[in-house]
Nucleic acid binder design. Sequence first.
DNA 1: ATGTCTTTGTGAACGCGTGCACAAAGATGG
DNA 2: CCATCTTTGTGCACGCGTTCACAAAGACAT
Lengths: 267, 267
Amino acid sequence: MATGRNHRPATRSRGIPEATVARLPLYLRALTALSERSVPTVSSEELAAAAGVNSAKLRKDFSYLGSYGTRGVGYDVEYLVYQISRELGLTQDWPVVIVGIGNLGAALANYGGFASRGFRVAALIDADPTMAGKPVAGIPVQHTDELEKIINDNGVSIGVIATPAGAAQQVCDRLVAAGVTSILNFAPTVLSVPDGVDVRKVDLSIELQILAFHEQRKAGEESEAAAGAPAPAAATPAATAQTENAGPDAAAGRKGPDGDMPAVMPA
Amino acid sequence: MATGRNHRPATRSRGIPEATVARLPLYLRALTALSERSVPTVSSEELAAAAGVNSAKLRKDFSYLGSYGTRGVGYDVEYLVYQISRELGLTQDWPVVIVGIGNLGAALANYGGFASRGFRVAALIDADPTMAGKPVAGIPVQHTDELEKIINDNGVSIGVIATPAGAAQQVCDRLVAAGVTSILNFAPTVLSVPDGVDVRKVDLSIELQILAFHEQRKAGEESEAAAGAPAPAAATPAATAQTENAGPDAAAGRKGPDGDMPAVMPA
DNA sequence: ATGTCTTTGTGAACGCGTGCACAAAGATGG
DNA sequence: CCATCTTTGTGCACGCGTTCACAAAGACAT
């Protein structure tokens, strides 16, 4: 009975816990910012603040990579940037295809944060024939018919799906069949993939719903606890908010440690 | 010594664990799809498959909301849709502002998944004066100068930041000062906010980096374990992949349980 | 060389989340 | 009304992730 095939030997990849892997890009971004300001070394305390995490957590995370720090001094910024980049596999070039060139696909194609991290947009693919040839972010859009050929010719192993939900599974199947083994899915659907293929999901609507839940809770608390709070403007009591769940958020650093663009810039 | 202000009474909001809250939107989406197909009831097993999670987990999640199922039968779809919607606070209208109308901001403005979930785009705001008045997704873009007035007039409590990283903290501060207590941040920066304000972060680059890590690991495993695997096309050995971390992903359902659009549609 | 001071690296405890396995509950049929 | 069968709801155990707290390590001054 039960679900069927359970059994998961160890999500832990190579001694490095998943939770740690998910934070490495965060550290890398903070370190890159320090590097650009020519800061030679950082303490775990400073770096943790810049990345928005606990310093003990940061040290433990780094301990999985090795002993790269110097006691009494801290971490060498350049060296750490290199080590984390290497660990994440960013020292090599990763050709990526984006399927579904709507507003979001275009936004992704324009996103500067990819190139600077070793990702290269190898091709843009869309099912709409009238899009074919039209350049987006300087790259001509190609038709879905060419998908397999593009994947093979460029040795693409990472695909981004930004199509409507209805087309997502089909596109996914074709990507996987063509050799893609990692997929970043923006379509609001549960994708079914064979073992050995990684899928990560980003759903804007879900994030908002989670915020709405907390927002509602705050509103309810306010009306049942306090008494004379006129406008919902100033800060609420004291709370214990801060959504620290699937990724450490704010409550720390201050100072924008990055020269990066967001998911895309207005121009 | 140590970090300073620690002490976190309980991230758990009102008996409902964070992890469960994060999955509720997933269930809701699957249920909505069933509702549209006029399916009257579902078993935990079926629904779990559609949502891409373990059935035991799903039952436990629902148990936090109450006993809404009928033993021997399953769950009433319509009733459950209502209960989850209410729990998430989606039965009320949530005016939302989007700041930074670049490609991504435009994609978000066009996203249909918001309206259908109780979210209403109250205004689009951009710092570029030449954007002012220009309609995006049928809504005229307004200048940043109007930010405070917009927030107040519309009673906005949720803000979306899609600006470049450099502007994010400043925009965030103004949003918070104007009364916003929940922020969805797309800018690659750690935002600093006072207690009582929730921040959720979406970083496209980070997701890709995590995929790259696993991809690299797969490649390494392949070359050190197996022997005669020619092209990196077909599925790798068997692995134990599947990135099940901050959100259950694939490996289940099949059948796209949604009529939803992705983050935005190509038209 | 020795002492002091800073900061790392980690052992250990704790808490949350997950999954198993089963008893209780109710539907359904005779 | 009773028996059987299905499916929920949950007690329990286990493992991962987080945090604390401190010993070890090295820099730096004298």
